[in-house]
Simulated scan of single mutants.
Amino acid sequence: MSIVVVGDTSLIAQALRQCGQTAGWRFIGHREALTSSAWLDGVGQVLNLAYNPALRNGYEHALDFELALARRIEPLPHVRYIMASSRLVYGPAIHDQALHESQEPQPVATYGVGKLITEQALTQMLGERLTIVRMSNIFGYEIAQTRRNFFAIALRSLLDQQRIVLDMSPFVERDFLPVEVLASWLIPIAENPQPGLFNLGAGIGTPTGRIAQWLIEGFGSGELLVTNLREFDAFRLDIGAARATYGIPGLTTTALRQHCQALGARLREESRLIQGYA
Rank of each mutant, 00 (worst) to 15 (best):
M1K: 11
M1L: 07
I3M: 01
V4C: 06
V5D: 00
T9R: 15
A13I: 01
A15V: 03
L16E: 02
C19R: 13
A23Y: 05
F27D: 02
I28F: 00
G29T: 02
G29N: 14
H30F: 08
S36W: 10
S37F: 07
A38C: 12
A38M: 09
W39D: 10
D41T: 14
G42K: 07
G42M: 03
V43A: 10
L47T: 00
N48I: 13
A50P: 09
Y51N: 08
Y51F: 15
N52M: 09
A54H: 11
Y59K: 12
Y59D: 03
A62N: 12
A68I: 02
L69H: 04
L69T: 04
A70H: 03
R71G: 10
I73S: 03
E74L: 13
P75H: 04
L76D: 04
H78C: 11
R80M: 05
M83I: 09
M83N: 05
A84S: 15
A84N: 07
S86F: 08
S86T: 11
S86W: 07
L88M: 14
P92S: 15
H95D: 14
H95K: 02
D96P: 09
D96A: 10
D96F: 05
L99E: 06
H100K: 14
E101W: 06
Q103G: 14
E104M: 13
P107N: 12
V108L: 15
T110E: 11
Y111R: 09
G112I: 12
V113H: 11
V113S: 00
V113I: 14
G114N: 04
K115Q: 03
I117W: 05
T118H: 00
M125D: 10
L126M: 07
G127H: 00
G127Q: 02
R129C: 06
L130T: 07
T131I: 02
F139N: 02
E142H: 11
E142Y: 03
I143P: 02
I143N: 11
Q145D: 13
T146N: 07
R147H: 14
F150D: 09
A152Y: 01
I153A: 02
I153C: 04
A154W: 10
L155H: 00
D160H: 14
Q161T: 14
R163Q: 15
I164Q: 05
P170Q: 11
D175G: 00
L177A: 06
P178D: 08
I189Q: 00
I189R: 02
I189H: 03
P193W: 03
P193F: 07
P195G: 14
P195R: 02
G196F: 00
G196T: 06
F198N: 01
N199S: 01
A202R: 08
A202Y: 05
I204S: 06
P207F: 04
Q213W: 06
E217M: 08
G220P: 11
G220N: 14
E223N: 13
L224Y: 04
N228S: 15
L229Y: 08
A234F: 05
F235G: 00
F235H: 14
R236P: 04
I239T: 13
A241L: 12
R243V: 01
G247A: 06
P249Q: 11
P249K: 07
L251V: 12
T252I: 04
R257P: 01
R257F: 09
L263P: 10
L263Y: 09
A265V: 01
R266H: 04
R268T: 03
R272Y: 07
Q275R: 15
G276R: 12
G276P: 01
